[in-house]
Structure formats: C-alpha cells, structure tokens
C-alpha cells in the first residue's frame, strides 16, 4: 500500500489530478463505490451511459462528474431515513474497498496540494512588498511552514490510518484546509480559473463525492 500511495502522490504532483486519479483507479480493488449518489472520475473513465452532472471547473481539469449507475432514483443522503438499518448498503464508510479508494484519492490530493504549494512559493519569490521578497514576510513563511508540516502529517496519516474510515475522512478535511491556506497566499491570482487554485476546488469536489465527512454526515 505504501508504494501505491507514493505512486499516486507522485503522479498527481507531476501530472495533475486526472493523471493521479487514473493511477489510483489502476491500483484500486474492484467493488468500490461512492458513499453518495454522485461520483467524479477522469473524464475517460466515466461509465458509458451514466447521467452526467455538469461542472465547468471539473471538466477543465479532465474530470467527469456523473450519477453512479443504478443510483439515479435514490434520494440524496441527507433525506434518507435516519435509522442505520434502513440506509442503503453503500451508505456509510464501512465498505473496505471504498475506504481504500479514499486513501488513494487522499494521496492524489496530497500530490496536488504539494504542486499548489510549490506554485505559491514560486509566485511569492517573484513579488516584493516594501522592497523585500513577499516570501520572506513572517506571516507568509509561517503559512508555508504550516502547509509543509501539514503535508507531511497528512502523508503519514494516510499510511497509518488507512483502515480507519474516520481517520481517512479527517485527512481529506485537512487537505482541503491546507489547499485553502495555500490558495490565500496567491492573492487574487489564487482565484483565477485557469490557475492551480482550480485544481484545489476540483480536488475538494472529488473528496466531497468519494469521502463521507469526518464522523459521518452531521
């Protein structure tokens, strides 16, 4: 698992989300499915005939969103009966194969997070405030250090917590937070749809589809 996780991270870091996700699919065991009704995969891996859910930014990232075949008539997660036994079998994070896929997706997202951070560092190295490189400002360096630390912590959490669905979900939540903290460093350029912040948004969309919230839906 360690090598697989590393490959997913490396691929996403070098080639982007869709390539990393393709790597994750190649390593995933059969039988995984999203915890909800909808899913997102590399555009060329969307099942033929699946009902598409259009998303402009995901499409530009090479990701297709769709209703998981066979779940077209299901009600959204939050309006299902509250009693556990009345929930569909796929609901919740007890499905091992789905949790494993969530771990691989976490590695993919981690690669994208590193890519975003490197872009931010390069961006800030080339800018100055008061004649000093922006990167040297303590507030900025503090965030860079926090994100670097968070990346290492997330990688280890994926390895050690791979069998604990809630731990995996928690790592995804922390990756979303790290991406946002990094995006803020980019200033308004972090809001451009043709920049790396788009990847951060789509990365979050992927987690939203494939990973139940930490502790389950509140």
């Amino acid at each position: 698992m360690r090598d697989t996780i590393a490959r997913c991270e490396t691929t996403a870091h070098a080639e982007g989300l869709a390539a990393g996700l393709t790597q994750a699919l190649a390593a995933a065991r059969d039988g995984f499915s999203p915890p909800g009704r909808v899913a997102a995969l590399p555009a060329d891996r969307v099942p033929p005939g699946a009902a598409a859910v259009r998303n402009r930014l995901a499409e530009r990232e090479g990701i297709g969103c769709f209703v998981w075949p066979g779940r077209e008539a299901e009600r959204p997660h939050h309006v299902r009966p509250g009693h556990e036994t009345e929930r569909p079998h796929h609901d919740g994070a007890s499905d091992d194969t789905t949790t494993e896929f969530a771990v691989l997706l976490g590695a993919v997202r981690l690669g994208a997070t590193r890519r975003l951070l490197e872009h931010a560092v390069t961006h800030l190295s080339g800018r100055t405030v008061g004649g000093e490189p922006t990167l040297r400002k303590q507030l900025v360096l503090g965030t860079v250090a926090d994100v670097m630390t968070g990346v290492e912590a997330a990688r280890h959490a994926l390895l050690t917590g791979a069998s604990v669905p809630d731990a995996v979900a928690d790592t995804h939540e922390r990756l979303t937070e790290l991406d946002w903290e990094t995006t803020k460093l980019l200033g308004a350029s972090g809001y451009l749809a043709d920049g790396p912040a788009r990847t951060a948004h789509v990365s979050r969309l992927l987690a939203d589809c494939w990973v139940a919230a930490p502790g389950g839906t509140p």
Partner: peptide, 14 residues
C-alpha cells in the same frame, strides 16, 4: 464546508 458535510456525500454536485 460545514453545509456540504451536513448535506452528505456528493452535496456539492447535488
């Protein structure tokens, strides 16, 4: 973020 969690997996696309 909380709202997306509260509405369950896939809420951002739903």
């Amino acid at each position: 973020r909380w709202a997306a969690h509260a509405l369950g997996p896939g809420a951002m696309l739903e």
